[in-house]
Design a protein around this nucleic acid. Sequence first.
DNA 1: TTGAAGTGTAACGAACACAATTACAGTTCC
DNA 2: GGAACTGTAATTGTGTTCGTTACACTTCAA
Lengths: 138, 138
Amino acid sequence: MVNQQFTFAVHILTALAFAEETMDSQELATSVNTNPVVIRRLLLGLRRARLVETYTGKHGGTKLSKKPGEISLLAVYDAVQARPVIAINERKAFKHCRVSCNMREIMSGVAAGAEDAVRKHLRGITLQQLMRKVRRAG
Amino acid sequence: MVNQQFTFAVHILTALAFAEETMDSQELATSVNTNPVVIRRLLLGLRRARLVETYTGKHGGTKLSKKPGEISLLAVYDAVQARPVIAINERKAFKHCRVSCNMREIMSGVAAGAEDAVRKHLRGITLQQLMRKVRRAG
DNA sequence: TTGAAGTGTAACGAACACAATTACAGTTCC
DNA sequence: GGAACTGTAATTGTGTTCGTTACACTTCAA
């Protein structure tokens, strides 16, 4: 199964960006089409990253803690701790092969570059831009 | 578990780049520290992409079909059909929510941009460059 | 001060992805 | 004809992810 936490998180935050008041986990779950507990688990990470504020108790729920223009998708990406874009082979090297002995280090560099490219891309997109797309689409 | 096919493939091709003759799947498996069948499955994809040539029968094996300087990591990436960098939520939208209704399209755009960023990065790296790194490292 | 309506979080299960492994048919060379 | 390879199907074990149930805790309002 593919990890969808990032997609779910962006969806949640965009929904919150449009909401005037707080939304509870059931409402968010309905929008994403999943279970409220899945949402609450995600919100933990978003809260740790100070992207949202949640309130317990009756009339509890969640709201954005910043303006949509101040939340980049990179912040969301970091908040959900996405798995690496390129996985490297962690098993031990075959000592008699120089390729094998150096592969981990070399692939680490390649993976870091790929990660960086993705991060640069996400850094340039804010929730506000996604809101505009939603509005334009009707 | 994370998909390591790309890393395995780069490792295999780099080993082949250093080999003067063909290498068989057992040798490659030893270098990667896995099973020969795993290697042969990967070689299928690399062969389809015309990055290697394999020979069956006694004294069979595999060799590169191009010079290391002519093989970019992007070609390898495409050959192994890596999973998407960012997975999008495929389940059906909640029709009464405009965010939900537009999320798939919006995330598709974000994911495509991320994919593109990774591809641009990989396009700039060739096997020859990796060989140089191995040589420098000793 | 009690009940309703939320969140926080642990525990478990089902579905899936991936790699490892076994097995064997086919190919090639000697 | 046998040895040494590749090609490929089938099965298994392990880890990941999400869904679900369960329940303690918090808050508000009557």
